[in-house]
Design a protein around this nucleic acid. Structure first.
Length: 554
RNA sequence: GCACCCGUAGCUCAGCUGGAUAGAGCGUUGGUUUCCGGAACCAAAGGUCGUAGGUUCAAAUCCUAUCGGGUGCACCA
């Protein structure tokens, strides 16, 4: 692709004296291997008919070994010769090293201690892991970090309900909680605390006091008072629960959990400096950013009770990431209701660390729903938990196959989330996700196992990459050379679903080839085995990037 | 009220730095197996790309308006 672009660019420069970056695409197979609309692009500047320009370019390209035809209103359709295709094929399973030497900070998942992991957390964890995987494969040094609110009002609420449940500040009574259900127990307390807060003003005051007490406990490094003991034990329970889930999901481990408490001091410092610079101002007892002049919302950084809000803490987080890692790129994945909020934080931050803001990308995702659409609210407790999704997939898989295969269940769930463009709401259908047919994780896993099986059958027979392809061989070969281009798009757009779309198309192309051409035992066995090997490698590389296991048999 | 996101086949979704007859899966209907894993392949039916204007040689893609759905708009995260 790049070679073709360069060749066209040189032709355009030599023939018309223009320096442009030509658009080259992979057209419908009937048109050729690559297509470009340069002729139409430059028609005004050149002042000639697009077809005439295209003809001239085709002649120019022929001189450097590219067979090009002119079609339609002036498209340039290019067909690679077999040697060029063979060369591309050698690099088909390679991830382009576009980020070699770059430092990337990836922030995703971001669950709050004292609350349950819901379906949205599962989603950002899976997608964030994949984006990070791809960047890492492209040569970047990755720092995977995970942020979470271990201070704040929700903690005050939960502490209130815990202490009420225990009948006082008796940390030893926590031993009575079933170790297997600590996270559920905590989230039940959170729900209770939340309703208590909404029910009565007295509760509200008590909860605010608890919230403050949690901040104090951090600033005084208190690990000894009964209140502090309860807090630290429960916070640890939360982190243990998170780690369990990540392990179950088989995602790359996080390098670091950054709790809000850790970045609060840094946040407060920036708030103070911003106040001095009049970036933030006092208003009704709170400290706010007046966003309207930037087309943004006005948001509170310190509330009138003197407590930092999420905004202040997030400033601290952003500063911490920047100062600790001096990243070249940074991405954050959150639910999309945070979009406007994040703009405000980044706007304030740009006054202090403009490079950090320029290098940061905020990605968002929508709500996860089940078919039928039950709405979720963690405050009321009727939420779709991460574990509910996994259980539903497990059940659907068992129902469909009569077997329990963790690889398939995990592959199904991850793929179901990954195959859609990040950003919108997702309707997760457990039955469809584990389906043995169609665009699903298990389908691709099966395709991989099948490829391995054929190779196994061939034993250690000779594999020699050849030229003079048959039509089906050539179509497959060409499709495989698209892989590095797909990865390049993912790196640019942060959109992992392109990998899914591509891998599915690839397996379809292979299946067509395989339906029509015999591999083992054919006169062309050696050439076809070489193609098969590349196919297996591309599929395996792609699935690995997606965090989906590529089984050799299933 | 203001802002942002979304609206493509019955369902779930690709395609959106404008380009060649709008694609896939599921579902529906019909077909293919002396042969390497049929979890496959082939074919048919199914679309005024929410609607209406505009820009352009060319619009699902860009602009404007409008309808419908979602989210956010000061002390939650």
């Amino acid at each position: 692709m790049e070679e073709v672009k360069i060749a066209i660019r040189i032709c355009v420069r030599e023939l018309f004296g223009l320096d442009i970056a030509p658009l080259v695409s992979r057209p419908e197979p009937e048109f050729g291997d690559f297509a470009s609309n340069v002729a139409m692009q430059v028609t005004k500047q050149v002042g000639k008919d697009p077809r005439e320009i295209a003809e001239a370019l085709a002649a120019g390209l022929a001189k450097v070994g590219y067979a090009a035809e002119v079609a339609g209103p002036g498209f340039l359709n290019i067909r690679l010769n077999d040697d060029a295709l063979k060369t591309l094929l050698e690099k088909a399973a390679d991830v382009p090293q576009q980020l070699a030497g770059k430092v990337v900070v990836a922030e995703y998942s971001d669950p709050n201690p004292f609350k349950v992991l819901h379906a949205g957390h599962l989603y950002t964890t899976v997608v964030g892991d994949v984006i990070a995987n791809v960047m890492q494969a492209a040569g970047a040094t990755l720092h995977r970090v995970n942020f979470g609110g271990d201070v704040g009002r929700h903690v005050g609420m939960t502490m209130y309900a815990i202490i009420r449940y225990l009948g006082g500040e008796y940390p030893e009574k926590l031993n009575e909680v079933d170790p297997l259900h600590r996270l559920d127990w905590l989230s039940a307390r959170y729900v209770e605390g939340n309703s208590a807060f909404e029910e009565h003003n007295d509760n509200k005051d008590a909860i605010t006091t608890y919230s403050k007490q949690v901040y104090t406990l951090h600033s005084e490094h208190d690990h000894d008072t009964p209140f502090a003991k309860i807090y630290w034990i429960c916070r640890e329970w939360s982190y243990d629960g998170f780690k369990d889930l990540y392990q179950q999901l088989q995602v790359q481990p996080f390098e670091r959990f950054i709790p809000e408490s850790e970045v609060t001091p840094a946040g407060l410092k920036i708030v103070q400096e911003a106040l001095d610079k009049d970036i933030l101002v006092h208003s009704d007892g709170a400290i706010v950013f007046k966003g309207e002049e930037y087309g943004l919302h006005t948001r509170v950084f310190m509330n009138s009770a003197g407590l930092p809000t999420y905004e202040a803490k997030d400033l601290g987080l952003a500063a911490t990431k920047w100062l600790d890692y001096q990243f070249d790129k940074s991405f954050i994945i959150t639910a999309n209701d945070i979009t406007e909020y994040m703009k405000v934080v980044l706007q304030v931050l740009s006054n202090f660390y403009p490079e950090a803001v320029e290098r940061t990308t905020h990605l968002t995702h929508g709500v996860i729903k089940l078919p039928g659409g039950v709405k979720m609210s963690s405050r009321k407790g009727n939420i779709l938990r991460a574990i509910d999704i996994l259980d539903a997939a497990k059940e659907a898989n068992f129902h469909a196959t009569g077997k329990e295969d963790g690889r398939v269940v995990l592959g199904a769930v991850k793929y179901a989330f990954l195959k859609q463009r990040i950003g919108g709401d997702i309707i997760y259908d457990p039955i469809e996700s584990v389906s043995i047919e169609g665009n699903s994780g298990p389908y691709l896993q099966y395709a991989h196992a099948r490829a391995c099986s054929i190779m196994k059958k061939a034993g250690d027979a000779e594999k020699t990459a050849g030229t003079d392809f048959t039509e089906f061989e050539r179509t497959l070969a060409l499709k495989m050379t698209e892989f590095p281009e797909v990865i390049a798009i993912v790196l640019k757009e942060y959109m992992p679903h392109h990998i899914c779309t591509y891998l599915y198309e690839l397996t379809q192309t292979f299946n067509r080839f395989y339906e029509n051409e015999r591999v083992v035992g054919d006169l062309r066995q050696s050439k076809r085995l070489a193609l098969l090997e590349t196919y297996q490698k591309v599929l395996e590389t792609g699935l690995n990037l997606l965090g989906v296991q590529a089984p050799e048999s299933m």
